[in-house]
Design a protein around this nucleic acid. Structure first.
Length: 453
RNA sequence: GGCCCCGUGGUGUAACGGUUAGCACGACAGGUUUUCAACCUGUUAGCCCGGGUUCGACUCCCGGCGGGGCUACCA
């Protein structure tokens, strides 16, 4: 390997929110750039002004920032590249490598009906105004994409149309713009989705006509939904924004996404981002499409959540809830940290500390059966008289009741839990009582007793 | 239709011309436990099919089947 300066680029098209597949492509570019000590260029692929909107650009930048995937140059929009594109286009027109052609889609179809479907369309130069520009594609030979992941992939030139590189109004099209940009920005490595593999020969043809050396290419397998089709909105969480709203941690998402299509040779699953950077290699990426499975993400996220310090955890929860990370929230987080797999799951566990108990008929029926009254009354007495209202004291006091009444622990703890939280699920009962405080705990138990039949 | 890519359990993956095909998630069972989560133990399930090459193929080759992508004056 030479000492060349590696330059990667991530070029999302802002026609919607940042898709999970796009996020993985961005991540792989980021990891590869960091791993190789190179730089990452963020280019916005918005040559289609009809579908690309500023709002979508902002969404994508926002998603990237949330994922903590920084870039070294950009974002660069296509508008700022217009002059370069026009100049390159003029050169191809001058050299005869490209020509104006007024043929419509119908004309092309008719041409193929006559010449066979396995042969690409070949047009004739036209002087008509408003004609699109097509690149001349040779009938002979093949264009080879030397892919880092798949090895050499051969495409017969004959099967490609003289494709359109600029519209009648002079604006350029993707396969042309992307080739010009990659060359002029001196991109060394293009890492992108598999859906671009068949387009690569077109870009190579443009590059050749312009006299540029092509970059290295690596085409990533696509991401599919649980039904095996290309991942889309139908498959639940399909965008980074949705992942964020579902309460996942950026570090967990990075770890999970990295594992979708790539693995380590020693079976390591849980990796910090530093470790990802040091171990990731584009050439090691697999070839087969992967299915996005949220269950493993949940597990991974739980692992990351539990490894956070209490301050980090509180900050993350506060941010997710849109609250201040104050002492009260910190105390609540302390007793809930071990319990949740996503940030979204934290609030149901701690809300009893901020609001009255939830009204859950099912929980009540399940737990507040016959014989509950004496147990709750005994608990009320015990809690009223215990000296220190801390988890340790509460445990020793309440555990005495289980021997006194000769019942299983759950028989007495569950009614207390439902009394103070309204739910059968909560953080540890002693911690919960302590966090709620003596006065409020007693009043909620009192209210529960009053409600008993 | 044409061109191209891909094919290891339900999911993500590892390995290799010769292993009892490994790991993780999930599922199931049990343990622990004040609920849940976590944790511990065990079980489950895989090389798409058919030919070749080879002493030997999941691994190499060919064919089939299956899935996917591209085939726009979209990106």
């Amino acid at each position: 390997m030479s000492e060349e300066n590696l330059r990667f680029r991530f070029a999302p098209s802002p026609t919607g929110a940042l898709h999970i597949g796009g996020a993985r492509t961005g991540l792989y570019n980021w990891l590869a750039a960091r791993h190789g000590g190179g730089s990452l260029v963020l280019r916005i692929e918005d040559t289609d002004r009809e579908r690309s909107t500023d709002e979508h650009v902002e969404q994508i930048l926002d998603a990237l920032r949330w994922l903590e995937l920084g870039w070294d140059e950009g974002p660069i929009s296509q508008a700022s590249r217009a002059e370069s594109h026009a100049a390159a286009l003029a050169r191809l027109l001058d050299s005869g490598a490209a020509y104006h052609d007024s043929a419509t889609a119908k004309d092309v179809e008719a041409w193929k009906a006559e010449h066979g479907t396995d042969r690409g369309y070949r047009g004739e130069p036209s002087d008509e105004g408003g004609a699109a520009v097509r690149l001349r594609v040779p009938d002979q030979g093949e264009t080879v994409v030397d892919d880092l992941i798949r090895g050499p992939v051969r495409f017969p030139n004959r099967s490609y149309d003289d494709f359109v590189i600029a519209r009648g109004d002079g604006s350029v099209l993707y396969n042309f713009a992307v080739a010009v940009d990659d060359a002029e920005m001196e991109i060394t490595d293009v890492v992108r989705g598999d859906d671009h593999l068949s387009n690569t020969p077109k870009q190579l043809l443009v590059l050749r006509a312009l006299g540029h050396e092509p970059p290295r290419y690596a085409h990533l397998p696509l991401l599919h939904g649980p039904d095996g089709r290309k991942l889309s909105k139908r498959h639940g969480a399909a965008s980074v924004q949705e992942l964020r709203e579902a309460g996942y941690l950026p570090a967990a998402v990075r770890n999970y996404l990295a594992l979708l299509g790539w693995g380590t040779d020693d079976d390591t699953t849980l990796m910090s981002t530093e470790e990802l950077v040091s171990r990731f290699e584009v050439a090691d990426v697999g070839k087969a499409a992967a299915i996005f499975d949220e269950r493993k993400l949940r597990w991974l996220n739980g692992r990351f959540m539990r490894e956070l310090s209490l301050d980090e955890y509180t900050a993350a929860v506060a941010c997710h809830l849109g609250r201040e990370p104050d002492e009260r929230l910190r105390a609540a987080c302390e007793i809930a940290q071990e319990k949740a797999q996503t940030l979204e799951e934290v609030w149901p566990l701690i809300r009893f500390l901020f609001e009255p108990p939830v009204d859950d008929e099912k929980a009540w029926r399940k737990v507040m059966g016959d014989g509950t009254r004496p147990l709750l009354e005994a608990a009320r007495e015990a809690l009223g008289s215990v000296e220190a209202f801390d988890p340790e004291s509460l445990e020793s006091t309440l555990s005495q009741l289980t021997t006194q009444f000769d019942v299983k622990a759950g028989k007495i703890y569950q009614p207390i839990r439902v009394a103070i939280t309204g739910s059968t699920v909560s953080p540890g009962i002693f911690e919960s009582l302590a966090a709620l405080g003596r006065e409020e705990s007693l009043s909620r138990i009192e209210a529960a007793i009053a409600r008993l039949p």
